[in-house]
Nucleic acid binder design. Structure first.
Lengths: 161, 161
DNA sequence: GTGATTGCAAACTTTTTGCATCCGA
DNA sequence: TCGGATGCAAAAAGTTTGCAATCAC
């Protein structure tokens, strides 16, 4: 079940909230950049192209709302700012895409995504052992990307781990 | 291989850095609170008990140093501040303890730890498929803890997921 | 003695909040 | 019309930095 713009409007109305240009544009910008990991500032700059009078505070208030509506995910790549990604079932043709994790290169800062559903077993395990009910997860791997590794090897350095 | 205070002093000297009371105390406080997830402010308050003249900036500079020396880990529980945990092999009798993940309750904010080594297979998988060399990871689960779940059930509410 | 380290205060960055105005329903 | 939503500016919160004084070696 993928959420369309029409469904988003319905969801807003059902909650007694108003459909505004700002809200539609924030979600649209996130949808158009589903491969990026956008900060509030990134979203602000892009929405401003279509709607120059928007304020940064509105971006923050809107992503908060979208988080609560579970239409976007929040991720933190440990670079000092929170980032937002549109949900896998929101606004897209990506009906098959499931969870993905982030691979963060400590050398160049690049962030790769890695699709995977293997955590479901672990989640079941956690629920059985602790009674904690898992609703969502965030998994980051820190290390060195292929390119940085090759670059290091070319420089004749020994790869120390 | 567990790192003792003596080894920490050696590591500092080997890097041409000085052994100061402040550095020893920060690591000691982290070691004494390995079950907590300490913010810079938490560490500051505790070190101040033994060393009232310490400044918050020193805490930040020291944890940065300890991170680089891989004696502590940084975690982010999405509550607005970065947290620090002493490394599993640092200053402890916990030679068998391996990786652990964090279970964050969205209702009461409590953070539980869950020991597990199941991610190693996934890391191998990632290295094979992408060439990304994994050095560390951080895994958080968001959901509802046992107590909050029971409380909700007692109130007669239907548990919606 | 000398260079690394510290404490303090100021600067900086990201995010939140108060409030008058505006706008969707 | 009316209450929710917005833009702006100010405030808050967390972290970093410059610098003179201090301390470890």
């Amino acid at each position: 079940m993928s959420v369309s713009q029409e469904e988003f409007k319905e969801m807003l109305k059902k909650k007694g909230l108003k459909v505004t240009n700002q809200r539609l544009l924030v979600l649209e910008v996130l949808a158009e950049n589903r491969d990026r990991h956008m900060t509030a500032e990134d979203i602000y700059e892009l929405v401003k192209e279509d709607y120059p009078e928007i304020g940064l505070a509105t971006i923050y208030r809107t992503v908060q709302l979208l988080l609560e509506m579970q239409l976007v995910d929040r991720i933190n790549l440990d670079d000092g700012c929170v980032r937002y990604e549109i949900g896998e079932n929101t606004y897209g043709d990506t009906n098959g895409k499931h969870h993905h994790h982030h691979l963060i290169c400590r050398d160049c800062g690049k962030v790769l995504s890695f699709k995977d559903d293997l955590l479901e077993e672990l989640e079941r395990h956690i629920e059985e052992e602790t009674g904690f009910h898992v609703q969502n997860h965030e998994l980051k791997f820190f290390g060195q990307c292929k390119e940085c590794r090759e670059k290091q090897n070319q420089n004749g350095k020994h790869v120390e781990v």
